[in-house]
Every structure is written in structure tokens, then in C-alpha cells.
Simulated assay, not measured.
Amino acid sequence: MARQEKAKAKMEQAKGKAKEAAGRAVGNERMTAEGRAEQAKGDVRQAKEKAKDATRH
């Protein structure tokens, strides 16, 4: 399950990065902000999984 969560975190980060870039390209501030939010969500998920890994070992 941890592997799935890590993959989900990476996917959210990549999706957010792409959305942010697309928003910048077309000048859409809302899309840019949504992209940043998705990246942050992925960062939080990744940090949570790293903390879980640290407590297991």
C-alpha cells in the first residue's frame, strides 16, 4: 500500500507541475494556483509516507 501512496504523491506532483505550466502559458492565474495546490498536496502526501517509512525502520 505504501508503494501506491508514493506513486500517487508523485503523480499529483507531476500533474500539478503540468497544470501550473499550462496556466502560465495561457495566462490563467486560477489554473496556475490549482497546479501549485496539487503540487503541495503531493508534497504533503510524500512527506507523510516518508515519516511512515522512518518509523518502521
Score class of each variant (00 low, 15 high):
54 A>V: 07
32 T>S: 12
41 K>Q: 15
51 A>P: 03
9 A>Y: 01
45 R>Q: 14
43 D>A: 14
23 G>P: 05
15 K>W: 00
35 G>M: 06
40 A>V: 06
40 A>Q: 14
30 R>V: 11
15 K>P: 00
4 Q>M: 05
5 E>Y: 07
4 Q>L: 08
10 K>Y: 04
24 R>I: 04
40 A>D: 12
16 G>H: 03
22 A>R: 14
6 K>W: 08
33 A>I: 03
49 E>S: 01
52 K>L: 07
30 R>L: 10
50 K>C: 01
11 M>E: 15
42 G>R: 04
28 N>P: 00
1 M>Y: 07
25 A>D: 15
18 A>K: 12
27 G>A: 05
50 K>N: 11
31 M>N: 04
47 A>G: 03
38 E>S: 13
15 K>M: 06
37 A>Y: 02
42 G>L: 04
25 A>I: 04
34 E>P: 01
24 R>F: 05
19 K>F: 04
44 V>W: 00
43 D>R: 12
43 D>H: 08
2 A>F: 08
7 A>L: 12
56 R>E: 13
56 R>C: 00
22 A>T: 09
17 K>A: 15
8 K>C: 01
56 R>A: 10
24 R>H: 10
29 E>I: 07
34 E>A: 08
43 D>Q: 14
18 A>W: 10
33 A>C: 00
42 G>S: 07
30 R>D: 11
32 T>P: 03
50 K>L: 11
29 E>N: 09
41 K>R: 15
15 K>I: 01
25 A>R: 14
29 E>P: 09
50 K>Y: 07
43 D>M: 10
35 G>I: 04
57 H>V: 11
20 E>R: 14
57 H>Q: 10
46 Q>G: 03
6 K>F: 09
42 G>H: 03
18 A>C: 03
5 E>S: 10
4 Q>F: 02
8 K>A: 14
57 H>D: 12
35 G>S: 03
12 E>N: 09
21 A>P: 04
46 Q>L: 14
6 K>M: 12
11 M>S: 14
22 A>N: 10
19 K>Y: 03
26 V>H: 03
55 T>A: 13
